[in-house]
């Protein structure tokens, strides 16, 4: 898989795709959606779609695709290579969401949680297939959050398509299994060949599985804390594991939006009945608006 676009810019999101097989524009198609790397505190999350004509579903099944989690890395690589060979009827597309994008979304002024980010990315990929004139008639999705709500949302967005959202869809529907293989192959490769944005000296490549409960991953995080900047962008700052390591080992940071919340806190009701004494004389509005204060000592 050619991830050179991602390697050039891994601070945002990156879309990769196969050419659309001609038959997928003519015949009704089934499309599967799955993701890889949702849980880890390190590296990108990858969303993938895979599609083929309904008439060729048996051929896709014949590849013996299965839930990517039950396959070894070499088996996944082999299956992905096979799907490439079958490019006359199998198409795929990926959205790689960088850890920086995940952090900045989840830690935004208006919080954009991982579920919403996932749902929107999945819907974006289905739309992408439609925009490229793939004749999608059925969509199967591995669920994130409650399947009923997710299905309702997707069905509303794509009224002409039959949408099925299910837990463990990656084990139930071959087209979702195929998508899960694409996602996992891309995620593994992206993590392996990650280009650090920062100029780091001797980065330890042994970060374990990337899952927060893996002792190796935790040790890696602790080793790579920078007291001012925190972590390299490879780390999802919004993960609790990352946050608690920062609380312990990095300098405190106060943001302007967290200060505003404190000031807006309600006063005790009794405080309105007490005399406050003489109010301190505030500087002229000109200075207040510019954040200027007079200094008598340095």
């Amino acid at each position: 898989m050619d991830l050179s676009d991602l390697e050039r810019n891994n601070t945002g999101r990156c879309r990769l795709s196969s050419p659309v097989p001609a038959v997928c524009r003519k015949e009704p198609c089934v499309l599967g959606v799955d993701e890889a790397g949702r849980g880890p505190v390190l590296g990108p999350m990858v969303y993938a779609i895979c599609y083929c004509p309904l008439s060729r579903l048996a051929d896709l099944e014949a590849l013996k695709v299965a839930d990517s989690k039950t396959l070894s890395e070499s088996e996944r690589d082999r299956l992905f290579a096979k799907m490439k060979e079958d490019r006359d009827f199998v198409g795929w597309a990926l959205d790689v969401l960088s850890p920086n994008l995940i952090s900045t979304s989840m830690l935004g002024r208006v919080k954009y949680n991982l579920n919403s980010l996932s749902h929107d990315t999945a819907a974006g990929l289905v739309q992408y297939a439609l925009d490229r004139s793939v004749k999608v008639t059925q969509v199967f999705v591995d669920t994130v959050g409650l399947p009923e709500k997710y299905q309702e949302r997707l069905q509303q967005r794509f009224p002409g398509i039959e949408v099925t959202v299910k837990a463990k869809a990656d084990a139930l529907y071959p087209v979702v299994s195929a998508a899960s293989i694409c996602a996992k192959v891309a995620r593994d490769q992206a993590v392996r060949s990650w280009q650090f944005v920062e100029k780091l000296q001797d980065v330890d490549a042994d970060y374990g599985s990337g899952y927060p409960n893996d002792p190796k991953t935790k040790a890696w995080l602790k080793k790579h804390v920078e007291p001012i900047f925190g972590f390299p962008q490879f780390v999802r700052f919004s993960w609790r594991t990352a946050q608690s390591i920062l609380e312990e080992e990095a300098e405190g940071v106060t943001w302007e939006d967290s200060l505003a919340e404190d000031q807006e806190g309600l006063r005790r009701i009794t405080s309105y009945f007490l005399s406050e004494g003489p109010r301190p004389r505030l500087p002229h509005r000109y200075f207040q608006e510019r954040g200027l204060e007079s200094a008598t000592t340095l």
């Binding site: 007291p227 001012i228 900047f229 300098e251 405190g252 940071v253 106060t254 302007e256």
Partner: peptide, 11 residues
């Protein structure tokens, strides 16, 4: 747009 509660050189 934030205050870093430290005062020293940073990389």
């Amino acid at each position: 747009p934030c205050e870093i509660l430290a005062n020293r050189p940073a990389p």
